[in-house]
Design a protein around this nucleic acid. Structure first.
Lengths: 219, 219
DNA sequence: TCTCTTTCGGCACTGAGTGCCACTAGTCTG
DNA sequence: CAGACTAGTGGCACTCAGTGCCGAAAGAGA
């Protein structure tokens, strides 16, 4: 997301004069510096001190921008979630819950072509480094919340009813399955994979009827 | 699982003479001691030293039984997974993939009545303490692996194809949705909730057709 | 210049996890 | 029984993430 303007770019608010001292950097810039280092020498091999030094700030300050090392690769996930919330809220009420969520999932994961390689490396880290993989659960919980809030509203049931909960989990599962697939193969298209996963969801493999999947290899 | 025989019970193998020194304790016993403390004073408020002391062993030794504090509440999850693998392998080949997995999920989560309250408190911790919630992702990945291995084998596709991956995620999602529901309400039956969640799965909410859910509350 | 506000960052501390290594408690062999 | 061998134990010291505290820096406004 930070295009290319040196790391310690100013905060957006810095133009309009505020009260106290100006922030030295931004979350986006720090996230970028950290990601760079993680990709170069690995997540575990990079200490928080390394990142702070590379960003030209104090270690203590870094922890005011991000609550933990694990949060660095995520950047501003809150903003992404907000985008998704808005998208869902704007969905026509005649569209089914499933269709609406499928569209939202696709939209949420659409990136401008030039950002794709960057996003790919980021996701590679997030899904392969154990510490990050574990931590991501907390982010996913927020994501699921967005989904199940919408589903609950549309179905007219409580958010903590079982339907919205299952729906949240299942759409997350489909998304992550697509991501795993995307990262496994070199020249695949994330959006296409998401669509495939969502189709599998629609058809409903589970009990009762056998999946509509053509056994490709050996029987 | 450790019934009530004092914590530092001997290892099973201690009867049949082995080579070196006998282990002082067991994973199960340590897991039990830790869980006790976590429930009493909270996960974050309990240090590894506390647990080691309570178990009468050295802190260093504890880390030989469990690789991290986060692993303590899980006990011997590997064994549970093995059980599930065996169950799936023994499933009649005429049963559909979905039915087989549904049955396995139910079986995997069946506990003798006297263990239910214990299991419930354990799961309460695992699903509510952020550190544990995050860490659990790693255990779930192993669980999903069992599911997708089976699905891949049955469908005759590679394990890393998208179908087994989605199936792994989706069954995990349904299970966890049921667990969340179980923990939210006081006198609910886990097995029943799992069945409900699996039914929702079978019906396939996602795109295309609206869910077969009766809007219960407000529209 | 003085005040008020906000960010910065050093310092010291806690707690998880690890490498190293000597020690302990057993078995096995002669 | 002595000595060799083996496996579990735990103390010590170290790294690194994360936190509380507090004074210093940087800017705005009067």
């Amino acid at each position: 997301m930070p295009k290319e303007k040196g790391y310690l770019q100013m905060n957006e608010r810095s133009v309009a004069p505020r009260m106290g001292r100006q922030p030295l950097t931004t979350r986006a810039a720090l996230s970028h510096v950290a990601l760079q280092l993680f990709l170069e020498r690995g997540f575990e091999q990079t200490t928080v001190d390394d990142i702070a030094t590379a960003a030209g700030i104090g270690r203590r300050t870094l922890f005011r921008y991000f609550p933990s090392k694990n949060d660095l690769p995520w950047g501003d996930f809150e903003a992404e979630l907000a985008r998704m919330r808005v998208f869902l809220a704007a969905t026509d009420a005649t569209v089914s819950v499933g269709d609406a969520l499928a569209a939202a999932v696709i939209e949420f994961n659409r990136f401008p072509p030039e950002e794709v390689p960057y996003h790919r490396e980021r996701m590679h880290l997030l899904l392969n480094v154990p510490a990050l993989l574990a931590h991501s659960t907390l982010r996913y919980a927020e994501w699921r919340r967005v989904v199940s809030d919408f589903a609950a509203d549309r179905l007219g049931v409580a958010v903590d009813a079982i339907e919205p909960t299952v729906i949240g989990w299942v759409f997350l599962g489909a998304s992550l399955a697509a991501y795993e697939q995307w990262l496994r193969t070199d020249d695949s298209d994330l959006i296409e994979l998401l669509e495939s996963a969502l189709v599998l969801l629609r058809e409903g493999f589970a009990p009762g009827h056998s999946p509509t999947v053509q056994p490709g290899g050996r029987a």
